[in-house]
């Protein structure tokens, strides 16, 4: 009961601007990461599904490496490992590191989502497209992509939500997104329950809103015959 009594609502109220600043950074990085992973997913997913030589194998290795290593290590590798390559250091801006790392992660998962989606498009549909005189690329754009992307939608939505949640790990390199802002705030105010309950509530609000929104889109985009 003392928990409730000693809970400092005023403190949260006073620091709403801080949370808002952090949230904006989170949403910005997540938006770029989600957009990028959508593009990667379509291109590499198509390469995998259509067995395009070389690109198919490169994509396969990329997917396995990213999905079988922790994203936190990937972030440190990009932020701290690449700068120490003997001879050819690669130095990136913190913001670049931020969106790049979540995009690379999301792209790998999305490649799998879209590969499965494209492969689930019945062969006869593509045959019909080719028979109508469409080129292979036009067939992909007009037949495989619209149907396959819809099949891939539920699993790719999970990936987008994960991309958003993964931005919290950028705290580890001091990128000032939502979790980092809260962590810094707590380290100077010593109010862990206020700070972290507010942080958790903010994430749930964003994640649940995002899920509800995409579910709405999903329902509108769902393939008619699957209804």
């Amino acid at each position: 009961m003392t928990l409730v009594a000693s809970f400092d609502w005023n403190f949260i109220w006073e620091h709403i601007p801080d949370f808002w600043t952090g949230l904006k950074a989170t949403l910005k990085v997540a938006a770029i990461g989600i957009g990028g992973s959508l593009a990667i997913g379509i291109v590499l997913g198509a390469a995998r599904a259509h067995r395009i030589p070389v690109l198919n194998w490169v994509a396969a290795v990329y997917v396995e490496v990213i999905r079988n290593t922790p994203i936190l290590v990937q972030i440190f590798f990009i932020a701290g490992g690449l700068t120490q390559i003997p001879g050819h250091p690669i130095r990136l801006e913190p913001f670049t590191i931020a969106w790049l790392s979540v995009m690379i992660w999301g792209g790998a998962y999305n490649t799998e989502n879209f590969r499965a989606g494209f492969e689930a498009v019945p062969w006869r549909y593509r045959e019909a497209g080719l028979a109508l005189g469409f080129s292979r690329i036009a067939t992909f754009a007009n037949v495989t992509l619209p149907i396959g992307a819809r099949i891939a939608l539920p699993s790719s939505i999970n990936t987008y939500v994960s991309v958003l949640k993964n931005t919290s790990l950028l705290t580890a390199i001091g990128f000032a997104e939502l979790t980092d802002t809260a962590y810094s705030l707590e380290s100077q105010s010593f109010k862990p329950s206020e700070v972290y309950l507010a942080l958790g509530a903010t994430y749930l609000l964003v994640v649940w809103t995002l899920s509800a929104l995409v579910r709405l889109v999903e329902r509108r985009l769902a393939i008619p015959e699957a209804r």
Partner: peptide, 18 residues
Amino acid sequence: LLQVDSPALAVAAVKDGR
């Protein structure tokens, strides 16, 4: 202000130009 969790990460930030 850039805040990181360990002094070594801070040194790396200066060396890497962040």
